Simulated scan of single mutants.
Amino acid sequence: MMCDAPALAVRIVTEGDLDVPLPGRGDTADRFRILTELCHRDISMGRLVEAHLDADAILADIVGERTGFGEFWGVWAAEPPEPMVTAERHSGRWELSGAKPWCSGVVSCTHALVTARDGDQRRMFAVDLQQPGVRPERGGWTAAGMRTTETGTARFDRAEARPIGAPGAYLERAGFFHGGIGVAACWFGGARKVAGALYTAAGRRRDDDIAMMHLGAVDALLAQGQAILSHAAMTIDAAPDDIDRARRLAAQVRWSMEQIATDVIDRVNRALGPEPLVHQREHAQAVADLGVYIRQSHADRDLVNLGRLVVDDRNLPEARCR
C-alpha cells in the first residue's frame, strides 16, 4: 500500500518510540538494521527519517546535543556552483541568505542543518525553519522516483542560524563517512523491497528455470549486502574516530551497495517482465525510487577516489581490507 511518506516520517520521528543508536557507540549494526527496515517499508519515508537521524548524529558528534522532542530535521548540504547560501554575522547573530536546492522534506521539516558559505569557507548551521526568513518552494521535480520526498528549494532571507562547529567541522570527522554508510543501508533496504516482488512470485514459478536462476542470484546478492553492512558496523565500532579508515570503508560500502541495488533491479525486471511494473503500483514506485536514490552515489568518480585512497593508504595492509 502506498503511503504519504512525509506524514509517516514525521509520525515515526515525533510520535513513535523510535530509538536508534548513534554510530560508533557499540550498536552500529542495530542502527543499520533500523535504516534498512525503514526503507524496506517505504523508500521515500525511510530516506526522510534517515536525514533526521543523520542530523541527530551530527549534532551529537560536533556539539554534544541531540534533536528535540517534536522536531523533524533535514540535512541540506548540497553544494552546486549556484545558487548558494551565504552566512553573515550581524549584531552578534548569524544570518543566512540565498537559495538551497535539493532540500528533502522542505515543507515538513521543522529544523535543518544547512551548509552555507562563510567567506571562502564552508560551514554548517542549525536553522529553525518556522521563522519568517525561511520560505520553502516545491516544484521542478519531474521524475517518478522519490517524488514524495518533498524535495525542493529553501530560500533564506536573513534567517537566524546557529553555527554547528568551526568551518569544515561537518566534513572533517569520521562521522561524516559513517553517515554515508547509513545511506547505503537505506539503499540495501530499498533493494530488499524491490526484491520482494520476485520472492512473492517465486512459488508460482518454481518450474521456470530462468526465474529460479534470478531468484538465486538476488538471494545471494542480499546476503552479500547484509554481510557488508555487518562488517562495516563492526569496523566502525572498533575504530569510531579513525577518519582514514572510515573514508575508505564508506567508499567501499557505498559502491558495493550501489552494485547490489542495480543488479537486484535488473534481475527482478528480467525475471518477472513488465507485469509488476505496470500493474503493481507499490513495486513500480519502489523501482523508480531506488533508481533515483542510488544516484546519490557519484558512480565512477567514487571509484576513482577509492583507488587513490588505496594507493595513499600505507597503514592498512591489503589483507586487512578483504
Score class of each variant (00 low, 15 high):
N315C: 03
C3P: 01
R123Y: 05
A7F: 02
M146C: 15
E275Y: 00
Q280E: 14
E172C: 01
A143T: 07
R158K: 12
A154G: 14
P132F: 11
L316S: 13
P136E: 02
G152V: 04
I62Y: 11
R123C: 12
V49K: 07
R25C: 11
A220K: 13
L290C: 12
I228N: 00
P21A: 07
A144Y: 02
L35F: 15
D4I: 03
L8I: 04
M257L: 15
Q252W: 11
D219M: 02
L198E: 05
A286R: 04
A174C: 04
R245P: 00
S104D: 06
R162P: 01
V49M: 02
E65M: 09
M2C: 01
P276V: 10
H298N: 13
E50Q: 15
H283G: 02
F72D: 05
A232M: 08
V310K: 03
E88C: 09
D17E: 13
R147E: 07
R314F: 11
Q296C: 00
A250C: 15
R245I: 10
L309I: 08
T67C: 15
H214K: 12
G182F: 06
D118H: 14
A5T: 08
D244L: 10
A220G: 14
L129P: 07
L221K: 10
A227T: 13
